[in-house]
Design a protein around this nucleic acid. Structure first.
Length: 561
RNA sequence: UGGCCCAUGGUGUAAUUGGCAACACUCCGGUUUUUGGUACCGUCAUUCAAGGUUCGAGUCCUUGUGGGCCAACCA
C-alpha cells in the first residue's frame, strides 16, 4: 500500500486544512508526551505511530517529551524503558524533552499571571475547595481567598517555592470562572506544594505545576503545531487555550490541541493500575510477560515492530468508541512473520513412529526449504532415521475421508522426506496409542524427481528424528481474558475474567538446526505457528514462546462437529 | 436538572466535502498447494430512528434514541 494513496484520517484533514489556509509546512511539529510512570502498552503504540507517522508523512520533527510533573509517581527506570520501546518500534525523535526542563519558565509565567490578577494563592483544604467547586449541574462558589492583594499573592507563592509551607497548605489557582459549565474552568489549580525529590530536578523545586498548566505551555515552548491527545482531554481544550492566551506571542506558532479516541483492544486491559494488579497478584510474571499488552511484553512474545506499525496503520484513527478485535493484530504478525520467519519442524505432543523397513542405525540428511515464499531464504538439512516423532493429533486408527492425516492402512507424506504407510500400532494398558509401525516407500523421497516422489498423497506431516531431536521448553499462550472487554462490566471486577489457561508449558522436540538459536530469533514451527526464543533460554535449554498460531481451518472443521 | 463529544457490515476505518457505500480483518464457500499455512477467487450493508431541505443526503437541518466524557493538590 502506498502511503500517498491512503485516504486521510480526520487529523490529517485538519492539518491539510491548516496548510491550505496558509500555515507553513515547515512549521509543522509533533510530539509524543508520555508520563514516565509505567511501561508503554499497545495503546501508546498507536499514539506513537500516529505522531511519528505524521512526522514522516510531513517530514516534520517529532519530540519525545516526558510529562514529568508529578515526582510521586515518576522514575528514571520508566524513562529508560519508554525510550527503548519507542526506538524498538523504529522511530527517531527529533529531541528528547522534559516538562521539568520548563519549570523555571513556567514559574516565571505564573508570577506574571499573578501580577495580572489572573492567578491567586488559595489557602483552603482540598475538601473545602472540592465542595466549592460545585457539580456539573450546579455552579461553584468563589474562594474567600480569591481576591487577595497582589502583594500577598506574590509573597505566598514565593513562600511556596522556597519551601516555607508544608504540603496542602497553599495552592496557586488560575482565576477564571467558578460558574463555568466546564468544571475545569472553575479556577483550576496550577501549582501544588510537594516536598518530594524529582528524578531529574532532585530537590530544586518543592512546587510542581499541574498537567493543564504544563502541557500547553510546553507545546508552545517547543513550538508544537498540533498537539494530539485522547478524547478524555477534550474538555481540557478550553483551559489549554486559556493558558495559551496568557503567554502566546502572535509571531510564534500557537499549538492546537485535537483529540482522538483511544484504541481499545479486545480481550485485554491497558490501564497502568490494572496491569500492575496482574503483576502484583501473580496472574503474570512481570511487566514484560508475553501475555501482557505492554510493548515489552509483545516484543518478548515475538511480535515485530513492523507488525505493530501495520496494525496501527490499518486500524486508523477516529473519534468514536471502539473495541478492536485482537484478530486484526494477530493478522499483522502472521502476515509479517510469514514473509520473514524460517520454517522448521518441531513436535510438541510426540507420538513415536517406527519405519519398520528402514535400516536400523542408518540416517540420512534431507534437504529442506527454509521459506517457500522466499527463494533467497535457502535450504537446510534435516536428519531422517528409523524412529521419528509425529504429533499425537496426526494419527488415528481409523477416521473418515476428511482426516488428511495418518490412519491405519493409508499413506501420508512426511514433509521433506518420504511417503509412509501406517501398518499397525501398539497401545498401553489404558488403550492409548504409544507407537505406530509404518513402512516407507524408498523411492518417494522429496525432490528426487522419481515417479514415486511425485505421487499425490493427501496429507503432509511434520516430524523429527527421535535420535537427533533437541528438547526445549515451549510456552503456549492464550488470551489473558475470557471476556472481550473485561474492564467494562459495571458490577464485575476485571480479574474475574482472567483466563486460567492463558499459559501452557510443554516440552517440544525440535529439529537439530535450532540448536544455536538466539534470543528473539523467530521461526515458524510448520503447521503449528510462529515461535520465538525467550530470554529465559540457557545454553542447556532453549525456551520458546508461541507468538501466534497459524490459521487453522482443520480446527474449525472440528469445532463444528 | 447541565455542558462537551460520538453513532457507516461481525470488527476497525474510508467515501474526491451533496453524486453508484470502498479497503483491511473476521466469518462462510471455492481454486492452488509436499504446511488443513501462504497465494488467488467469491458471498455477506437499503449508513441508529423519524421528519425536513434538495433533481439527488452516510454527508446539511430538526427532534428523538443509544453510547462515552466532565466535580484528583493525577496525567
Amino acid at each position: 500500500m502506498n502511503e500517498t494513496e491512503r485516504s486521510l484520517n480526520f487529523l490529517e484533514h485538519i492539518i491539510e486544512e491548516d496548510l491550505k489556509n496558509g500555515f507553513p509546512k515547515e512549521n509543522l511539529r509533533f510530539r509524543f508526551p508520555p508520563e514516565p510512570n509505567g511501561y508503554l502498552h499497545i495503546g501508546h503504540a498507536s499514539s506513537i505511530c500516529l505522531n511519528f507517522g505524521l512526522g514522516l508523512r510531513y517530514n516534520a520533527p517529532v519530540n519525545l517529551r516526558f510529562d514529568d510533573t508529578n515526582p510521586a509517581k515518576e522514575e528514571q527506570e520508566y524513562v529508560d524503558a519508554i525510550k527503548r520501546d519507542v526506538e524498538w518500534l523504529g522511530y527517531k525523535w527529533n529531541t528528547e524533552r522534559y516538562a521539568s526542563d520548563y519549570f523555571q519558565q513556567l514559574y516565571d509565567w505564573a508570577v506574571l499571571l499573578i501580577k495580572e490578577g489572573k492567578a491567586y494563592v488559595d489557602s483552603q483544604t482540598s475538601e473545602e475547595m472540592a465542595t466549592q467547586k460545585g457539580t456539573p449541574t450546579k455552579p461553584g462558589v468563589e474562594s474567600p481567598y480569591r481576591n487577595r492583594s497582589l502583594k500577598e499573592n506574590l509573597e505566598l507563592f514565593e513562600g511556596m517555592k522556597s519551601g516555607k509551607f508544608e504540603e496542602g497548605k497553599h495552592v496557586l489557582r488560575a482565576k477564571i470562572d467558578m460558574s463555568s459549565s466546564n468544571m475545569l474552568m472553575r479556577d483550576p489549580i496550577m501549582y501544588r506544594v510537594l516536598h518530594k525529590s524529582h528524578h531529574r530536578t532532585n530537590t530544586n523545586w518543592c512546587i510542581y505545576p499541574m498537567y493543564d498548566w504544563t502541557h500547553g505551555e510546553s507545546d508552545y515552548i517547543e513550538q508544537v503545531s498540533h498537539s494530539l491527545c485522547t478524547l478524555e482531554f477534550a474538555m481540557h481544550r478550553e483551559l489549554y487555550d486559556w493558558f495559551l492566551d496568557q503567554v502566546v506571542d502572535k509571531n510564534k506558532v500557537r499549538p492546537k490541541q485535537r483529540e482522538f479516541a483511544r484504541r481499545n483492544l479486545s480481550h485485554t486491559v491497558v490501564s497502568k493500575r490494572k496491569l500492575l494488579r496482574l503483576v502484583e497478584e501473580g496472574v503474570v510474571n512481570s511487566w514484560d510477560d508475553p501475555r501482557m499488552p505492554t510493548i515489552s511484553g509483545l516484543r518478548r512474545r515475538g511480535y515485530t515492530p513492523e507488525a505493530i506499525r501495520n496494525f496501527a496503520d490499518t486500524i486508523g484513527i477516529a473519534k468514536r468508541d471502539n473495541l478492536i478485535d485482537v484478530s486484526l493484530l494477530e493478522f499483522q504478525v502472521r502476515d509479517h512473520l510469514n514473509k520473514v520467519a524460517s520454517r522448521v519442524m518441531a513436535v510438541l505432543d510426540p507420538l513415536k513412529v517406527i519405519i519398520t523397513n528402514y535400516p536400523e542405525g542408518e540416517e540420512e540428511w534431507l534437504e529442506a526449504e527454509n521459506n517457500p515464499g522466499d527463494e533467497s531464504a535457502g535450504f537446510r538439512k534435516v536428519p531422517f532415521s528409523r524412529e521419528l516423532y509425529i504429533e499425537k493429533a496426526d494419527f488415528k486408527e481409523e477416521a473418515n475421508k476428511k482426516f488428511f492425516r495418518l490412519k491405519l492402512g493409508s499413506e501420508v507424506r512426511l514433509k521433506n522426506a518420504y511417503i509412509i504407510k501406517a501398518e499397525s500400532c501398539t497401545k498401553d494398558d489404558d488403550g492409548n496409542v504409544v507407537e505406530v509401525q509404518c513402512t516407507y516407500d524408498p523411492k518417494s523421497k522429496s525432490g528426487s524427481g522419481t515417479e514415486e516422489s511425485l505421487r499425490k498423497v493427501k496429507g503432509t506431516l511434520h516430524w523429527v528424528s527421535v535420535k537427533h531431536a533437541i528438547e526445549a521448553e515451549v510456552r503456549l499462550y492464550d488470551r489473558l481474558f475470557t471476556d472481550e472487554s473485561p474492564d467494562t462490566h459495571k458490577d464485575k471486577d476485571f480479574m474475574e475474567f482472567v483466563n486460567p489457561d492463558s499459559l501452557e508449558i510443554v516440552t517440544g522436540f525440535l529439529e537439530p538446526s535450532l540448536k544455536y538459536a538466539q534470543v528473539e530469533d523467530r521461526v515458524q514451527f510448520q503447521r503449528l505457528g510462529y515461535f520465538c526464543v525467550d530470554p529465559d533460554s540457557t545454553s542447556e535449554k532453549l525456551v520458546f514462546n508461541r507468538t501466534v498460531g497459524l490459521r487453522d481451518s482443520w480446527a474449525k472443521i472440528q469445532e463444528k462437529k
